[in-house]
Simulated scan of single mutants.
Amino acid sequence: MLSRRPPFPRLVDGVALLYEDGGASAARGADFSDASLLTSPATPLAFAHASSRQTDMELATGEGFAFERKVRVRDAPAVRSARLALIGPDVFEVAYVDRDGGGYAYLFLDQLRSAGTVSLVADSGGCDDIGNPVGESRTPVHVRDTARAGAQAMDAARLGVARSVSVTLRERDYADERRFELGGRRYDVKSVRAANGWAVVTGERELA
Rank of each mutant, 00 (worst) to 15 (best):
V73M: 04
D176Y: 04
S40H: 03
D100S: 13
K190Q: 10
G64Q: 05
S51M: 15
D34Q: 03
D13Q: 07
T202K: 05
D176C: 06
L2V: 15
S166P: 12
G184V: 12
A50P: 07
E177G: 02
C127W: 01
D13C: 04
R186I: 07
S40M: 08
P44S: 09
D128W: 04
V141F: 03
R170T: 05
G102K: 13
R178W: 01
Y104T: 11
A157V: 04
S81L: 12
G203I: 00
A85V: 01
R99S: 15
L84Q: 01
K70L: 09
E181G: 10
D110G: 11
F65N: 04
H142D: 04
T43R: 09
V161A: 04
V94D: 00
L112C: 04
A16L: 10
L45G: 00
Y104R: 08
R138D: 00
H142W: 03
G197C: 06
A175I: 10
L159M: 14
E171L: 14
R163F: 05
S166I: 11
G197E: 12
Y187V: 00
P7W: 02
V165M: 02
A30G: 03
G101F: 08
V200Q: 14
Y106P: 07
A50D: 13
E63I: 00
S124P: 08
D123M: 11
P41I: 07
D145E: 11
A30E: 02
M1I: 09
S25C: 06
G62A: 15
A48T: 14
V167N: 01
A153V: 10
I130C: 09
G64I: 08
P133L: 01
A50F: 09
P41A: 06
S114M: 02
D13F: 06
V121F: 02
A105W: 00
R172K: 12
Y174A: 04
E58V: 15
V189F: 03
G197A: 09
A35Q: 08
E68G: 12
E206Q: 13
D90M: 14
Y19D: 06
T55S: 15
V161F: 12
A208C: 07
S25Q: 03
S81H: 10
R163W: 10
Y187I: 03
S166L: 09
L2K: 15
R158V: 10
R99V: 15
E136M: 08
E204T: 14
V79M: 02
R53M: 07
R186S: 12
R178N: 06
A82V: 03
